[in-house]
Amino acid sequence: MAAASPSASSPARWPLSLWIGMAMLAPLILVAVGGPAVAPYVYDEMNFLARLQPPGPDFWCGTDEFGRDVFSRTLVGTRESLIMGFSATLISLVIGMPLGLIAGYKRGRIEELIMRASDVLLSFPPILLGILVLAVTPPALWKAIVAIGIVYAPQVVRVTRAITLELMQEEFIEAARLRGESARYVLFSEILPNIWPPLAVETSLRIVFAILLGAALSFIGMGAQPPSSDWGLMIAEARPFVEQAPWIALCPGFALAVTVIGINLLGDGLRAVLDPRNTGRH
């Protein structure tokens, strides 16, 4: 009944991408947990004597137009980006997973209704749906997180449903149903434990999309608001100074790239460990 084959789950056999991904993400997570405490300067403290300073021994990544330390701001922004990615994905899962399970298990009318509704949401370009949700009220970070969660929920619905449908063909599910187990038992005790491995892989990729969409929303001014040091917002604020002081934009941009590559590698590695059948499916 275990979905992952035990031979692949011993750490000695983990693929290289999983190790590299973890090595890239571990410092990021530490920095995110440490937050302002690990930053050499206060992230939103202005210092007009040191505006637009190039990188040097005092300011490792230079300073911005208000004399704020770009390195400290980028460090502090890590927490925001990771929180954004993780909580938005959590929201997608909370909305999408039960709907996908129901659609895959109940079939019929309910399935039709759920799938058509998610198709409509999928007909919007993701960023546009985000903007549409956010345009209603003044922008704020938590609203952006909820919007991203909603935007990506239909895709979780699709994946969960597909996995559930696949599982429903399995003999142990059929056996449970023939035994006369309740729908609740089959869903929670038989299906749920078995959809986790493939869903975990999918989730790691969702987090990347959520982080990137969050950065894009903050970049166009509809996500995190100043004086936050969200990476997308930092890059947007650096845009007018990019010719004089490129480091303001480069530092958070580099951080974003490291985060995204790290999570992608981790996801690739996870797929090889948890879901060996489907390696290379995407």
Partner: peptide, 11 residues
Amino acid sequence: IAVPDFFWAIL
């Protein structure tokens, strides 16, 4: 894929 489009733009 890893670098967001707006950062490419700025580069």
